[in-house]
């Protein structure tokens, strides 16, 4: 099961630039300019929303083209996920031991 999963994951990761074919945003995920155009105003909550300064905002890296940024984003995202699960496993184990010895 594992080997085939990794084949699928690798295949999807290679094909990832296909995800850039759509230039349109998802329904209901527009930016302020869209509301200005459609409604004539931007709802206050949306206008005043505080958002984080995401390092790879919109899956792009400044100064690189979109395909490079997209590949890099996929790699970074996958890497973070594996590290996260690894760290969680270590935390769970350490806590499990301390519970047993207590």
């Amino acid at each position: 099961m594992k080997k085939r999963l990794y084949i699928v994951l690798f295949g999807l990761a290679v094909l990832i630039p296909l995800g850039l074919l759509s230039g349109s945003p998802a329904w209901g995920e527009w930016d302020g300019a869209y509301y200005k155009k459609i409604l004539g105003f931007i709802p206050k909550g949306i206008q005043n929303a505080k958002s984080l300064n995401a390092p790879l905002s919109d899956y792009t890296l400044g100064g690189t083209n979109s395909i490079t940024g997209y590949y890099l984003s996929a790699f970074v995202g996958i890497a973070i996920l594996f590290v996260l699960f690894f760290v969680l496993m270590k935390i769970f184990k350490a806590r499990g031991k301390s519970e047993q010895s207590a």
Binding site: I16, L18, L21, S22, Y70, G77
Partner: peptide, 10 residues
Amino acid sequence: AMSFVIMMFN
């Protein structure tokens, strides 16, 4: 990781 990647296919 597969879930993360599949969500990138817009």
